[in-house]
């Protein structure tokens, strides 16, 4: 088991390494980039950049320094907000983004699995079609369309929920809903397909032939096989929710990493955008790693 862990962790290092490398060379070599000498830069920043990026050293050495700094969690100073380092900005936004993200994942799992199970158990009934229709809607309507609609309904027309601001639970309701709707839909579809497939397995027929009640067949015999594939949803879901949070934080004006990211992109804050990309890449890799380890732990057939 331990050696499997080690192997799996080792295999995700190259990916992270590649992300950092691509980010570095993109920022260093891009025409019109911050290090392009044709563009005038304020002296103060120039000196700062000089120091942080060791611009007088050859490129490979610079790359080495950068790698070392990133490993220490230091992405350098922000290009636009001179008083902050990128790491500080990320650290500021992280609590907001992680709360949103975790709540969205939790909500998606709970509601999605519930809907999927109901649909699968009533396969081809009206309720199944309803759930699958809703799921199709949830997957199709983009979050940047859904958010304005919900703001209009709950915020403007009915005045039930705040449409911006941060700090209280009520501020999280709409953003979390917008973030989770597509994921609820995805989980519901996956659960339905997975449960239907599982219920067609010969071992479920064996369980029925043994006289087990439906409740026990579902909870003991079908649950693990049904939910294991959902586990692998977590990896892509992290990526999707991070992407979604960029939109949601922008629309609802929340102080998370996503908004820094977009502001950075719009303001050409190279170091910030780059730092966030590496950080996001790290999060996604971490989640995929976690999923694989959980998988290995839950499936007795996987040999370590």
């Amino acid at each position: 088991m331990l050696s499997y862990f080690a192997k799996r962790i080792a295999s995700s290092i190259p990916t992270l390494f590649i992300i950092i490398t691509i980010a570095f060379f993109m920022i260093r070599l891009a025409p019109g980039g911050p290090f392009d000498s044709e563009r005038p830069v304020p002296a103060e920043i120039a000196a700062n950049l000089e120091k942080v990026y060791h611009l007088n050293d050859p490129l490979p050495v610079q790359y080495g320094y950068y790698l070392l700094n990133v490993l220490k969690g230091d992405f350098g100073p922000s290009f636009k907000y001179h008083d902050f380092t990128v790491s500080e900005l990320i650290a500021q936004g992280f609590p907001v983004s992680i709360q949103l993200g975790l709540l969205a994942i939790l909500l998606s799992l709970m509601i999605g699995v519930l809907l999927g199970v109901i649909a699968a158990l009533r396969q081809n009934s009206a309720i199944d079609y309803l759930v699958m229709g809703l799921a199709m809607t949830g997957i199709t309507i983009p979050n940047f369309v859904m958010a304005p609609i919900l703001i209009l309904l709950f915020g403007v027309f009915w005045g039930l929920l705040p449409t911006s601001g941060w700090g209280e639970l009520k501020h999280m309701v709409l953003p979390v809903i917008v973030l989770s709707l597509p994921q609820i839909a995805t989980v519901a579809r996956m659960t339905r397909a997975s449960l239907i497939e599982t219920l067609n397995m010969p071992y479920i027929r064996t369980a029925k032939a043994k006289g087990l009640p439906t409740r026990l067949i579902l909870s003991r015999h079908a649950s693990r096989a049904t939910l294991l594939p959902i586990l692998s949803w977590l990896g892509p879901a992290t990526a999707a929710i991070i992407t979604g949070s960029v939109v949601v934080e922008t629309i609802f004006g929340l102080p998370g990493i996503g908004r820094h990211f977009i502001n950075g992109a719009l303001n050409r804050d190279y170091t910030l955008v780059m730092g966030v990309v590496v950080f996001y890449g790290f999060l996604i890799i971490l989640m995929n790693l976690l999923v694989d380890l959980l998988y290995a732990w839950l499936d007795p057939r996987i040999k370590y």
């Binding site: 993109m26 190279y270 990309v277």
Partner: peptide
């Protein structure tokens, strides 16, 4: 997004 920052 990173690309759009550089290349416009």
């Amino acid at each position: 997004i990173l690309l759009t920052v550089y290349f416009g």
